[in-house]
Simulated scan of single mutants.
Amino acid sequence: MLRLAKTDSVLLPVTLRLPTDKVDVFNEGTIHVQVKVLSKDRLKAMSDDDTQDAEYIREIVLDVQGLGDDAGTAITGPAAVDQVLTGTWSNFLQAAILQAYFAQFGEARVKNSKTSRGR
Rank of each mutant, 00 (worst) to 15 (best):
A74S: 10
P78I: 05
L4R: 15
S9E: 14
I60K: 00
T115A: 11
D41Q: 10
V14N: 02
V35T: 04
T88C: 14
D69A: 05
V81R: 00
Y56T: 00
V64F: 01
M1W: 05
I60G: 00
S47E: 13
E59K: 09
N27F: 09
W89F: 14
V84A: 02
S39G: 07
V25A: 10
Q104V: 04
M1D: 15
Y56K: 04
K6F: 15
A71H: 10
L38N: 07
T73H: 12
D63R: 07
D53P: 07
V81W: 01
D50P: 13
K40D: 13
Q94P: 02
D63F: 01
V35S: 05
R109L: 08
A108T: 09
A54L: 13
V10I: 06
L12K: 05
T115L: 11
A71S: 11
G68A: 12
Q52L: 09
T7C: 15
R117S: 12
R119F: 08
M46A: 13
V37S: 04
S116N: 08
L12R: 00
V25N: 11
T15Y: 04
A79E: 11
M1R: 14
Y101M: 04
A74K: 15
E55W: 02
E28C: 10
A45P: 06
A79C: 08
L12W: 01
V84D: 00
L12S: 05
L4S: 07
F105Y: 12
S116C: 11
T20H: 03
E55I: 02
L12G: 02
R42L: 14
I57G: 00
P19Q: 05
I75F: 02
A45M: 15
G66E: 07
N27P: 04
A108Q: 10
R42F: 03
A80G: 07
L38I: 03
L12E: 08
L62D: 13
A54D: 09
A103N: 12
Q94N: 03
M1C: 15
K6A: 10
Q34S: 09
T76I: 13
V33Q: 06
E59P: 00
Y101E: 03
G87F: 01
V10H: 06
V64R: 02
D63H: 07
N91P: 06
L12C: 05
A79V: 06
R17E: 10
S47W: 01
R117D: 06
T76A: 14
I31H: 00
F105V: 03
I97F: 08
A79W: 03
N91M: 13
L16N: 05
D69Y: 04
K44V: 15
Q83F: 02
T73R: 07
L67A: 02
A45E: 13
G77C: 04
M1I: 15
I60Y: 05
D50A: 09
F102T: 03
T115I: 11
D49P: 01
T7N: 12
G77Q: 03
V37K: 14
T73S: 08
T15P: 00
I97Q: 00
T20E: 07
V81I: 15
R109K: 14
D8Q: 10
T115F: 11
L93R: 01
L16T: 11
L18D: 09
L4H: 15
F92W: 10
G29T: 06
L38G: 03
